[in-house]
Design a protein around this nucleic acid. Structure first.
Lengths: 198, 198
DNA sequence: CCCCCAAGAAAGTCTTTCCTTTCTTATCAG
DNA sequence: CTGATAAGAAAGGAAAGACTTTCTTGGGGG
């Protein structure tokens, strides 16, 4: 018989991280409308009082859980040395890292959080989705520009953002990462041919 | 003094349409999570019993309201005689007709409706968003094919759907119709140049 | 013109869930 | 080691909201 593992009490930042992770998981599995403070507490193996010691309202927990998920799941962007390699890698990384994030965050923002926080739609979107970087500021484009692979002054922003828009679209519609084939089609059949013409 | 207008009792289909319109408006203004049967009834100037005589559960009303909105706001697709004209017209029509629809429907589907209906995500999406036609089945592409403007056998589906994906993306992210300039950029800077290469 | 179904109003039941309170005890800081 | 702090458990108050029931009466169909 293995000795009964002693359940230790969690504290501080570590506990808080587990609370927010539980909140996120509830959000994904049951949705904002049906999630309760109790369901979060049970999932985190603690009690509601522990939640209320940190956040005054349910909306605050949810908002914090979304921000925490984004902060703890940063998109890792490698430097492969070529524009095509960077694009494929970054689109794949975004897809995998943010697979559920976009759909859940968007759905939550537009389904009641708005009405409860007193924030404007734009404010909620900014906090929940994160501030979008300007197309020309993306590191992979800057590097490609410096290597001479493209001229940032001449390439329209519509084109630069198109691959990211399409991946984001797929994530929202399918709730899962686009296939590698789909990502390659976006890069090789849409983006790169257009870049050649410039 | 104008005589107090006699408030007449509504019946049948006409009443039902007003109930569902009230449900949709509540969905847009307060979101799925905070909408109540009473708030719908009050908005429709009637009582909850009238709702329950038609739908057994709140989820059923919401689902019906979404479908009703889509059915009563069909996208009108004109025939302009050219592929470019058809595309600009259809993307504009989709944008204006479906401006709020996509965001609200998607948010609702992923924020609790799913958990309540017992349907799979795919089923809810199909009912709520409507069955998406296959790219090659879109009437404007068929017409262009028949005129000889493009060869449907040779154009990849990724390309055919790209303009619609981008517009849908914009609708979801901005909650409002993309500008005419943005639609023209999608058609003239992205879609048509790629079609030329084929 | 009359009958009958359903609209509309109102009150009520019961469950859920937000949030609070209290108490015990593990753990952290010094 | 010791005192302060917060975790965890448990119970419950209060309010909101889903759904029901009953009753009155308008008005559509015959």
């Amino acid at each position: 018989m293995a000795p009964e593992p002693v359940r230790r009490r969690r504290h501080g930042k570590q506990l808080e991280a587990e609370l927010l992770a539980a909140g996120w998981d509830e959000l994904v599995e049951t949705g904002y409308a049906r999630l309760t403070m109790e369901s979060i507490a049970v999932r985190a193996r603690t009690s509601e009082a522990v939640l209320y010691r940190r956040w005054a309202h349910k909306d605050d927990v949810v908002m914090a859980a979304i921000e925490h998920y984004r902060a703890t799941h940063p998109v890792v962007v490698p430097d492969t040395g070529t524009l095509r390699g960077d694009l494929l890698a970054e689109l794949t990384a975004v897809s995998e890292t943010r697979a559920t994030f976009f759909a859940i965050a968007a759905a939550t923002a537009f389904s009641g959080l708005l009405a409860g926080t007193g924030l404007t739609p734009a404010q909620v979107r900014a906090r929940v989705m994160g501030e979008a970087a300007l197309p020309r500021e993306r590191a992979l484009y800057r590097r490609a520009h410096d290597r001479g692979e493209l001229d940032l002054e001449r390439v329209p922003a519509t084109l630069l953002e198109m691959p990211f828009d399409l991946v984001r679209h797929d994530l929202l519609m399918e709730l899962k990462a686009p296939s590698p084939a789909r990502i390659r089609a976006i890069v090789d059949d849409l983006f790169l041919p257009l870049l050649d013409r410039i």
